[in-house]
């Protein structure tokens, strides 16, 4: 109660809480070899259950055995077909993420910095946001037809929202003490945005980027399943029609692998761009 007056003041005056090591930070200190073994073990259990289920159902169409999937995976990998499809999908993903960053991040800055811009744009965002990207596929088929544009459009749409919302949150969440400090040094507004708000929002934007990627990667499969003559999603649909379940499963594994690798790469990017944010809740 004694500090209530100061707490009510628009400038935060209470000492900031120092970064406390999070669970993630503690796990990071876990010996790598040991955690590798744990991962391996959980994979082994998963494959054992799969095998048992495949033996039980005894229907290669519904659930092929791990071994047949592995064989399919090998042949698809060797003749380069899988790589082609993966590259096609990945290129679309990269283009979509690029467009989403160029559109959503500046828009997020505008909305985060200007109350007025936010009042104009936010209602539209709130109406569009709950509509799944997949819901646009039929309409997009009419507009773009089957091809590259449709999956790129769907993914860009999906990726924009988490990026936009995280950018806004990051901009608004800029530490007010740092803004105050910059102002007392006579730093002009434009430079405050460039040198305080931008780096301050970066960790939150990076989180948005990872969420955007995860959403986009899920959406690409649906988009390619229906609206594309190439890519990982198309391949799944193709082999489904040919009733070649092992290859369907092989592609599902490829989707998981590409998604996982991209997230690992994004985490590495996050660590490189925002090394100071490690050990905070955003890292």
């Amino acid at each position: 109660m004694q500090r209530s007056i100061e707490i009510d003041s628009p400038l935060p005056v209470s000492p900031g809480n120092p970064a406390r090591p999070t669970l993630a930070a503690k796990v990071a200190g876990y010996p790598a070899v040991l955690s590798g073994l744990v991962t391996l073990r959980s994979f082994a259990v998963f494959i054992a259950i799969w095998w048992a289920a495949a033996a039980w159902t005894h229907s290669p169409l519904q659930l092929p055995t791990p071994l047949s999937v592995l064989t399919a995976l090998k042949s698809l990998a060797i003749d380069g077909e899988m790589l082609d499809n993966a590259l096609t999908s990945f290129t679309r993903l990269a283009i979509s993420m690029g467009i989403a960053v160029v559109v959503a991040v500046p828009l997020g800055f505008l909305m985060g910095l200007s109350e007025r811009a936010n009042a104009y744009i936010d209602p539209m965002v709130e109406v569009l946001r709950p509509i799944s990207g997949i819901a646009w596929i039929p309409l997009a088929l009419f507009i773009f037809g089957v091809g590259d544009v449709l999956p790129v459009f769907i993914m860009t749409y999906v990726a924009c929202f988490p990026l936009l919302l995280n950018t806004i949150a990051g901009v608004r969440g800029t530490d007010r003490r740092l803004l105050a400090a910059a102002r007392t040094m006579g730093v002009p507004q434009s430079r405050i945005v460039r040198h305080v708000v931008m780096p301050g929002a970066l960790p939150t934007i990076m989180v948005g980027l990872r969420l955007a990627f995860a959403g986009a990667w899920s959406a690409i499969i649906a988009a390619e399943l229906i609206g594309s003559p190439s890519g990982l999603g198309f391949a799944i649909e193709w082999y489904r029609q040919l009733l070649m379940s092992p290859k369907v499963f092989a592609y599902i594994i490829a989707i998981g692998a590409v998604g996982y690798s991209c997230d690992v790469a994004l985490q590495a990017l996050q660590r490189t761009l925002t090394p100071w944010a490690r050990g905070t809740e955003l890292a």
Partner: peptide
């Protein structure tokens, strides 16, 4: 605010980046 009056904040307000 102006640079003629420098402030040292309670928790230093250093830029973490």
């Amino acid at each position: 605010p102006g640079a003629d009056r420098g402030v040292m904040f309670q928790d230093y307000a250093l830029f973490p980046w």
